[in-house]
Design a protein around this nucleic acid. Structure first.
Ligand SMILES: [Mn+2]
Ligand SMILES: [Mn+2]
Ligand SMILES: [Mn+2]
Ligand SMILES: [Mn+2]
Lengths: 219, 219
DNA sequence: AATAATTTTTAGTCTTGTCTAAAATTTTTT
DNA sequence: AAAAAATTTTAGACAAGACTAAAAATTATT
């Protein structure tokens, strides 16, 4: 249906729109796509012609319903493939993203349906991100940053803000992985670093930088 | 490493070379690639520059070791993905080829290694074609055409010559699937159609056209 | 050996997606 | 409100991969 490149642009614009309500400007798209503003202008004209987004010169862009639908489909494919790579092929959570960037462009609705079923209709990918449903609905939860949790508060590690390999590998090393129960024992006033208890037994120290990138589900 | 298109050309030339020992000419490549002779000339110049094949104007092409290696890697990926689609996702044997045509271009050696292991190091794909090993070795068997089998001879259905959906669906319908034991009961002199016995109990009639496209393993 | 038919290559054009440099517009600063 | 800075668009060019039409080379036929 749409090219590899078009899908990547739509996905990038969709993700920018998620955290930024107003129209998306050319430079921010160029930044996340690692390309030039001129190339972005070229592409958004094409996407606008195809009614995938609304574009006014110098005013930025906004996805149409059709553009958003396509973007969400690509995100769904990406996260299902990440889940496959992690759950079935035993890739670590920091290794799945780059391969899924390729796999998300494979075109076959049946393939995605069957993959979804094979994986047992997962709701979240290996990073805790929600997998959009077939109909485009995304069930989001309200998570709180570990850095925003108050003393003695408990929660389950449910996602990450930063998706870089470096950060994911660090979490893996200190065993701060999805699903673990965390209780805030101490908040150090000087550097806002935390002492936390993991699953009742283990006790570790983490920096505020780390805590600011972990999403928690609390009761 | 190489583009989607380059990989497809190398694979096509490799397959032509398999059944035709001498140099491969432009038109035959154009035919299997469903493109024009002019486009083929353009591409073989590029592949020649990259030392993937040897090319002399008007004399056709021949893959170099490097070109052959790349082609075999692509065939390996194609057949492993077909096996995944069939064995794990329950696609029928006539549905896997088109999707594997896309999946074979995903670039990640680790992915292929892990997929191979996950599938239990399969030796043949859903059509009975051998899966090249990681080192490029292809273990071929000598099969005989069902149409060449003599009266009372027994064998196991082990592959197909024609890979079209139409033919594969037909075999599925008459239950002539891989692994079934077949015995030739009668050869009709008029049209060379066969009466065959399937797994001791069932007896069916098949045309010579069908028999000529089935590969048998005999003792 | 000359002619006809076939095959292959070249020339020129197109589309997609990219780039740099320059021009136009908008936003910020004075 | 003008000038300066930043952003965005346009213009022109390029590479990959494809196509058509015409020219060149090879092969087959007489
Ligand atoms: Mn990802
Ligand atoms: Mn993810
Ligand atoms: Mn196939
Ligand atoms: Mn096959």
């Amino acid at each position: 249906m749409y090219s590899y490149t078009e899908e990547n642009y739509l996905k990038a614009i969709y993700k920018l729109q998620e955290k930024n309500n107003d129209a998306i400007n050319t430079n921010s798209i160029a930044r996340v796509m690692s390309t030039t503003a001129a190339s972005v202008t070229d592409m958004i004209k094409k996407l606008s012609d195809k009614k995938l987004l609304e574009y006014q010169k110098y005013k930025g862009v906004q996805l149409t319903e059709s553009g958003k639908k396509t973007a969400i489909e690509t995100v769904r494919k990406h996260r299902l493939w990440e889940t496959f790579l992690h759950n079935k092929l035993n890739f670590l959570w920091d290794e799945v993203h780059d391969i899924a960037e390729q796999l998300e462009h494979i075109q076959s609705q049946t393939l995605i349906d069957k993959l979804d079923e094979y994986l047992g209709f997962p709701t979240h990918d290996p990073h805790g991100d929600p997998i959009p449903e077939r109909n485009g609905i995304i069930k989001t939860s309200n998570y709180v940053l570990l850095s925003d949790m108050t003393l003695e508060k408990e929660g389950i590690i449910s996602g990450v803000v930063n998706h870089s390999s470096l950060f994911l590998q660090h979490l893996q090393k200190i065993e701060l992985t999805l699903g673990r129960l965390v209780k805030v024992i101490e908040i150090n006033a000087f550097d806002l670093s935390l002492s936390i208890q993991l699953d009742k037994d283990q006790k570790i120290q983490i920096s505020n930088e780390v805590a600011r990138n972990i999403l928690m589900k609390t009761k």
